[in-house]
Amino acid sequence: MSEEKNILAELYDTVLERKTEKEEGSYTCYLFEQGLDKILKKVGEECSETIIAAKNGDNHETIMEISDLLYHLTVMMVEEGIHISDVEAELKKRSEKTGNLKKFHQVDHNT
């Protein structure tokens, strides 16, 4: 029995392929050509749009914006050499923690 690949892993592989094999007219290739600053700008825009859609209570629009955000985050990951398995491993590690709310993710707000 073969294990079905999850859709995020498929997306990652497609984005990775676009980075190495340029395809004319590809938005993904365009983002890579523009570089990290453009990719990060798009991540920020999609994050804001996701927040607005959720605040407006429009689930369909929120789903669309989450999908856009996940796509742009995937482009960022590929650009930065972060493999999806690294993120999956971190999520798995976090899922094994219980009753550890304060230690889950600490941010130094003074920096």
Score class of each variant (00 low, 15 high):
Met1Lys: 07
Lys5Tyr: 05
Asn6Tyr: 05
Leu11Thr: 06
Tyr12Ala: 02
Thr14Pro: 00
Thr14Glu: 08
Arg18Cys: 09
Lys19His: 07
Glu21Cys: 09
Glu21Ile: 10
Lys22Phe: 13
Glu23Asn: 03
Glu23Met: 08
Glu24Lys: 13
Ser26Asn: 08
Leu31Cys: 08
Leu31Ala: 04
Leu31Ile: 03
Phe32Asp: 01
Phe32Arg: 04
Phe32Cys: 03
Gln34Leu: 06
Asp37Gly: 04
Lys38Tyr: 13
Lys41Phe: 10
Lys41Val: 05
Lys41His: 12
Val43Met: 09
Val43Asn: 05
Val43Leu: 07
Glu46Phe: 02
Cys47Gly: 14
Glu49Cys: 01
Thr50Glu: 01
Ala53Thr: 03
Ala54Glu: 13
Ala54His: 14
Lys55Asn: 14
Gly57Asn: 13
Asp58His: 11
Asn59Gln: 13
His60Arg: 13
Glu61Phe: 05
Glu61Ser: 08
Glu61Asp: 10
Thr62Gly: 04
Ile63Met: 13
Ile63Leu: 13
Ile66Arg: 04
Ile66Asn: 07
Asp68Asn: 15
Asp68Gly: 05
Leu69Asn: 06
Leu69Trp: 07
Tyr71Gly: 01
Thr74Phe: 02
Val75Phe: 02
Met76Ser: 11
Met76Gly: 07
Met76Val: 05
Met77Asn: 04
Glu80Tyr: 00
Glu80Ser: 12
Ser85Thr: 14
Ser85Leu: 07
Val87Gly: 01
Glu88Phe: 01
Ala89Phe: 03
Glu90Met: 10
Glu90Ser: 04
Lys93Tyr: 14
Arg94Glu: 12
Glu96His: 03
Glu96Gly: 12
Asn100Pro: 00
Asn100His: 14
Asn100Val: 05
Leu101Pro: 00
Lys102Leu: 15
Lys103Ile: 00
Gln106Phe: 09
Val107Leu: 14
Asp108Met: 00
Asp108Leu: 07
Asp108Ala: 10
His109Arg: 15
Asn110Arg: 11
Thr111Val: 15
Thr111Gln: 10
